[in-house]
Write a protein that binds this DNA or RNA. Structure first.
Lengths: 126, 126
DNA sequence: TTCATATTTCGACATATTTCGAATTATAGG
DNA sequence: CCTATAATTCGAAATATGTCGAAATATGAA
């Protein structure tokens, strides 16, 4: 029985659609790259920011940005919470973990080998 | 310097767009689930198949299927090669590995912890 | 060559997406 | 209460996507 046996295609399709737009992908990557590898991030610096701050990242109209954030939030990739006048956004790390898991078939002891010739496929380009 | 410093947004957006459609996602998962975990797949069974075989997976017109395969191939997710009358398709495992790597920020010794509170974010739902 | 099978290309159409500006809502502060 | 700031909702317009059927292309076999 494959690990993809009972996969929710609708859900994952929505997640991937959320990051299929370059602007939304930029937002996600902005959140994912909050830390410099090997260093400890300053608390409160980076991972949480308000909508307006994200706007400087994209150069689109506020209404457009709002729409994109709604998509990301609807797909469960980011969290949003009002804090005074502003609305704070931060990464939904569990959702990212789920996506990472989705692609981790290669961790399978058999299928996960660099070459998958045991599966009957020669990994040559066309 | 973040690992996302020099990321090709256009490329990854295209990859995610390719699997943002439920039908195309089904095709990808079909290829990814060729093996049953812990077992060795029969050579020639599963991972390589012709376009027609994939059609039974989707119930769409052949022309539609062809369009979807073109998208997946254009995004570099599958390989295609003519073999007689048929055209064989199989997973581009290196492309999948690249996507997996994209989401593996959590493998970072600091950022990769289950809770990312060190980043200033409390992972609470809104 | 002629026919059958496998797949793609083309043109068309309905629907979805991206984007904007204007108007609206929510909150903070005088 | 009034004003300013932050963000969303609401049309509207341009573009992209998903789908089909018909026609075209590629290959193999009679």
């Amino acid at each position: 029985m494959s690990k993809y046996e009972n996969i929710d295609f609708t859900h994952y399709a929505r997640v991937f659609k959320a990051i299929s737009n370059p602007n939304r992908l930029k937002i996600l990557v902005y959140f994912m790259s909050c830390c410099e590898p090997g260093s400890v991030c300053t608390v409160g610096d980076g991972p949480r920011c308000c909508v307006g701050e994200l706007g400087s990242l994209l150069s689109v109209a506020p209404s457009t940005l709002s729409h994109h954030l709604k998509e990301l939030h609807g797909a469960g990739l980011i969290n949003m919470q009002r804090r005074g006048q502003q609305i704070e956004c931060w990464l939904a790390t569990d959702a990212i973990a789920a996506v990472r898991e989705f692609f981790s078939f290669a961790a399978d002891p058999v299928c996960g080998q660099a070459d998958n010739s045991h599966c009957g496929g020669k990994d040559e380009a066309e």
